[in-house]
């Protein structure tokens, strides 16, 4: 029997087109991305129908976890350095240049100012450990949180306040934070929530 000779076809595919697509997507993701910021604690925000987006710049984030620990952070590296200097002056702690530099790289922190130097001396990977998430004191005897907010306002007058708290956080803790703001005459702030569908057809 005569074999039908099939012409051998090359199995190599032209990858050029695929390469184009891959790099197109890559460019898209690189340009649109803003990295997830590391947070010292897990916070499940409640949901709301509000669709206002949070601004990207000039924002002060106050993070409250479910046990009531308060974390704080502002954006802008120079602003962070200025802020820590001011806090250092207020609590008569001298921060070295290296410590200031380290501090400018931290987006959120939650340690009392007395332990700030130890905290900054840690390796960046160790800072996220659970035992280092102490929270900023914000009771009436030692309200360091109030000073952080006050100095952040001085450092950056345009700053806006965003409060991100866990669903299960008890109301007295939130009330305490809000009262602190009111003491400082900071009456407008944003509460960070996740999106929920707006119920349609309410009355018709």
């Amino acid at each position: 029997m005569a074999k039908v000779k099939l012409p051998r076809k090359s199995t190599a595919i032209d990858m050029t087109a695929m390469c184009d697509v891959a790099f197109l997507l890559l460019t898209f993701f690189m340009l649109t991305s803003n990295f997830t910021q590391k947070e010292p604690v897990m916070v499940n925000t409640p949901s709301s129908i509000s669709e206002i987006k949070i601004p990207e710049r000039n924002i002060m984030t106050i993070l409250v976890d479910k046990t009531g620990k308060v974390f704080f952070g502002i954006d802008g590296q120079e602003k962070r350095i200025e802020l820590l200097k001011k806090m250092g002056d207020a609590y008569s702690i001298q921060f070295s240049d290296k410590e200031l530099k380290e501090f400018s790289l931290i987006s959120r922190f939650g340690v009392p100012i007395e332990q700030m130097q130890d905290f900054l001396a840690l390796k960046s990977t160790d800072r996220d450990l659970q035992e280092n998430a102490i929270g900023i004191p914000c009771d009436s005897l030692n309200n360091q949180f109030k000073n952080w907010v006050r100095f952040a306002r001085i450092v950056n007058p345009q700053i806006r306040i965003a409060i991100k708290a866990d669903q299960t956080t008890a109301y007295p803790i939130i009330k305490n934070v809000m009262n602190t703001m009111q003491d400082l005459d900071e009456n407008r702030y944003n509460l960070i929530t996740s999106l929920e569908q707006n119920p349609e057809k309410l009355i018709f």
């Binding site: 709301s48 206002i52 949070i54 009111q182 009456n187 407008r188 509460l191 960070i192 929530t193």
Partner: peptide, 15 residues
């Protein structure tokens, strides 16, 4: 690593 969705906020003004 990206977050496509920016978190929502609720604006509130206290007295």
């Amino acid at each position: 690593t990206t977050t496509m969705i920016k978190p929502q906020t609720m604006e509130i003004a206290m007295p």
